[in-house]
Amino acid sequence: MTAYVALLRAVNVGGTGALAMAELRRLCEAAGFAAVRTYIASGNVVFTSPLDAATVKRRLEEALQVSTGRQVSVAVRTAAELAAALAANPFADAPPSTTVLHFLDAPPQADTLERAVAPDGERLALGAREIYVAYGAGMGRSRLKLPSAAEGTARNVNTVAKLVAMTAEVSAA
């Protein structure tokens, strides 16, 4: 069994993507995932499955479509991939609450940094399938334009660290 984390895009943000975490757990269990746990009401779910990541992603997105009536994008990482993304954070000197990983399905495009507009001094770096952003004054005040992140979903370093710990717990169970 592989431990996975699924990061749902636009769930419980601004009231437009409301999905109770109990319902998300139920959907994951009905899709055949085990040891299902959610973390905060923003679409973070940890579980185990014998399936490969592409099948996990497809199954969860299909279950969400049926349940919510809309397409919900999901970024899926194995426990090892998530831990590696956290370890690769190039902004360890920045506050974890204002440093964000934008999770993508594919590696960021080579021109991602050139196309970004960071008027508030945000620092950016590319990862394997992530874009790292140190927001400095915070994401809420930022006027950062990051076109490459439009299809992804973001989590701050504190959340990613908690999810890494949770994947380690379900792996050990």
Rank of each mutant, 00 (worst) to 15 (best):
C28N: 04
A34S: 15
A79T: 03
R123M: 07
G43C: 07
V72D: 03
R25Q: 13
A87E: 15
A79F: 02
S67V: 08
V117D: 14
R58F: 05
D111A: 01
P95G: 06
R37V: 13
A41R: 12
V46N: 05
P119Y: 09
A116L: 02
G140F: 07
G17E: 06
A53I: 11
S73L: 11
F47N: 12
F47H: 11
L24Q: 03
D93F: 12
V56T: 11
I131C: 01
H102V: 03
T98E: 15
S97E: 14
A85N: 14
T99A: 09
L27D: 05
L51D: 15
R37T: 12
V72S: 02
V72L: 04
R129E: 03
A30V: 01
Y135C: 05
R58H: 13
G127F: 05
A31G: 11
A41V: 00
N89W: 04
R70M: 06
R141Y: 02
R25C: 06
A116M: 06
D111T: 00
A92Y: 11
R26S: 10
T68S: 09
S142L: 08
V72T: 13
T99C: 06
A128V: 12
D111E: 10
R123H: 04
D120M: 10
P90M: 08
G121E: 09
F47C: 14
A94R: 08
M21P: 09
E23M: 02
P107N: 05
G32P: 05
Y135P: 08
Q65D: 14
K57A: 13
F33Y: 14
L64T: 13
P107D: 03
E130F: 07
P108V: 15
A41N: 13
A125D: 06
V74S: 00
R26A: 15
R37A: 14
F47V: 14
I40R: 02
A88L: 07
E130G: 06
N89E: 12
A83C: 13
L144W: 08
P50Y: 12
